[in-house]
């Protein structure tokens, strides 16, 4: 496995097939198309068709229990961008995504480098860092809600050091510059959610980086050592540049998880006072299914989709090109 290509997207068969690909369809090709046709139709309808339908709903007046699909133009979008709650959501998503990705990258690389030192009990350590990924965000949310509970939890521990934190119930936003309707800055409560999310997802980046580190042939390190490079230099000058493409993958995967996050926050903090931990996923759920503002909810979901697509579409297209 080369470090530049992750284990599983290589297509060993593309060479053999490429010669045939140019030809017109024969019976075999019609048959194989028929094989996957049900899946193509399902995805065409349930992914692309439904996205289009959501887009249509987001441009309608359907903001009550009774469907009203009359055309409203961009009214719902304009409402959202002026809405205190949605502005808070954008701020929270921005800082949540930023800190979450940084935490996952830093801890992932650190732990992967540690685990790569031919240590004893490696598989035990690896399992300790990986197992949270097998949990549901709901389970994680429930546990960390208890751990970071301002009245109990880690705070009792921190109080001994003179730190008195409100964690996810804090409404403080640092530095809190007035911007449109909201205080712009880093909400303290978001940090609490980042800790829980990073605790769960670090294993992913550890696994990715470790796979990358393991793919670097030992001879390269040996050669560098021969030339008198220190271990630190080997990592900085040789290893880290070689695993850089993995960082791109991890950032994209984590960004798309973070932009559509819902269950962790819903289970752990909910929207929070002043919406300090609210995110578009929670707002969409509550306004659509609790408040019956379907058109507003659809507009939120389309904004979420577009924000994810900014990361994912170039990634998919470059994967496609890299393969053929």
């Amino acid at each position: 496995m080369e470090p530049k290509v992750l284990p599983s997207f290589q297509s060993g068969s593309s060479l053999a097939v490429s010669a045939k690909k140019r030809k017109k369809w024969n019976v075999d090709q019609w048959l194989s198309f028929a094989f996957i046709l049900p899946s193509i139709i399902a995805v065409a309808v349930f992914v692309y068709g439904f996205i289009a339908w959501s887009g249509y709903v987001s441009l309608s007046n359907w903001n009550s229990l009774v469907p009203d699909l009359s055309f409203a133009g961009l009214k719902n979008y304009l409402f959202l961008f002026k809405d205190f709650r949605f502005q808070a959501d954008l701020r929270n998503t921005l800082f949540f995504t930023l800190f979450f990705i940084l935490a996952v990258l830093f801890m992932g690389l650190l732990l992967a480098v540690f685990l790569d030192q031919k240590i004893r009990g490696e598989s035990l350590f690896r399992n300790i860092f990986f197992f949270p990924m097998a949990l549901s965000f709901i389970v994680t949310g429930v546990i960390w809600q208890w751990l970071l509970n301002p009245a109990t939890g880690v705070n009792l521990f921190l109080k001994k050091f003179g730190l008195d934190s409100l964690w996810y119930t804090s409404v403080t936003v640092i530095p809190g510059i007035q911007w449109s309707k909201i205080q712009f800055g880093i909400p303290i409560a978001v940090i609490a959610v980042v800790i829980a999310a990073a605790w769960q997802m670090t294993g992913f980046s550890v696994a990715m980086y470790l796979a990358g580190l393991r793919a670097i042939p030992e001879e390269i390190r040996e050669a560098a050592r021969m030339d008198g490079a220190t271990e630190f230099q080997i990592y900085r000058k040789i290893i880290f540049p070689m695993v850089a493409p993995i960082t791109v993958s991890v950032v994209i995967i984590m960004a798309h998880i973070s932009l559509k996050i819902f269950d962790l926050i819903y289970a752990m903090t909910g929207p929070g006072a002043n919406f300090v931990t609210d995110v578009p996923g929670v707002y969409m759920f509550e306004t659509t299914f609790r408040g019956n503002y379907y058109a507003n909810g659809a507009a939120i979901s389309i904004i979420m989709l577009l924000s994810v697509a900014i990361f994912i579409v170039p990634y998919l297209i470059s994967s496609r090109k890299g393969e053929s």
């Binding site: 349930f46 992914v47 068709g49 996205i51 932009l259 989709l305 579409v313």
Partner: peptide, 20 residues
């Protein structure tokens, strides 16, 4: 077709939820 299928695994499911 494969790439177009893959897109479906990254979408926020909120964006298909109301029609679904």
């Amino acid at each position: 077709i494969f790439t177009a299928l893959l897109f479906g695994m990254f979408i926020p499911y909120q964006s298909i939820l109301i029609p679904l």
